Simulated scan of single mutants.
Amino acid sequence: MCDTATGMAVVPGCCAGLEEWREWTQVISGGSPWLGHDPGPEAEVVDDNLRVWQDGGPNRHRGRWAGLHVDMPRSALPELLVRAQRDLAGFLTALTGWAERAGLGRRGIDLVEAVDTNFTITPPLDLASS
């Protein structure tokens, strides 16, 4: 996540992957998605903003990341999640086409289904808490 006005960036920690993209819906109700281990990024709602900390908030650690965060309007999150789902669905479409052109048959179908299952792409996105 990058603030284009200030140039401040927050990067995911280790073990954070795209497959957890739906966890960002937790922020809408005040939770924080899994953003990985060290440096331990976290998200929180601050007034009408979503604040993403590089290292779990200003008092968690006093190392090089202490106090670094990026703010964005909380109201922007639902649309960003909808766009992420649309992009991932587009990837599934492209993967399906590739599997067909490669003549993978049932293995191609299984591959697309496995990617969809692992990334939870096609089920409806629950943004009711927004």
Rank of each mutant, 00 (worst) to 15 (best):
W65T: 01
P78S: 13
E42G: 10
H69V: 02
V70N: 01
E44P: 05
H69Y: 14
L50A: 11
V70A: 02
L77H: 06
M72Q: 11
G57Q: 09
R51A: 13
A76W: 12
S75R: 06
V46H: 09
P39A: 08
G40S: 11
P73S: 09
L77R: 04
R60F: 02
H69E: 05
V70T: 00
R64K: 07
A66W: 10
A43V: 10
P78D: 10
R62W: 07
L68K: 11
G56L: 00
A76Q: 12
V52N: 03
P78H: 06
D71C: 05
D48V: 07
G40D: 13
A76H: 11
W65Y: 12
G67C: 08
D71L: 05
D48K: 13
G67Y: 03
G56N: 15
P41W: 01
H61V: 01
P58I: 05
D48H: 13
H61Q: 03
G67N: 10
D47Y: 07
E79V: 02
R64V: 02
R51S: 11
P58L: 01
G57R: 01
L50N: 05
E79C: 01
D71S: 11
R62I: 04
D55Q: 12
E42T: 12
R62Y: 06
Q54F: 10
R60H: 04
G57E: 06
M72N: 01
R60Q: 06
L50I: 13
R74M: 14
W65E: 04
V45A: 13
A66N: 08
A66C: 08
L77Q: 09
A43W: 08
D48G: 15
W53T: 07
E79F: 03
N49H: 14
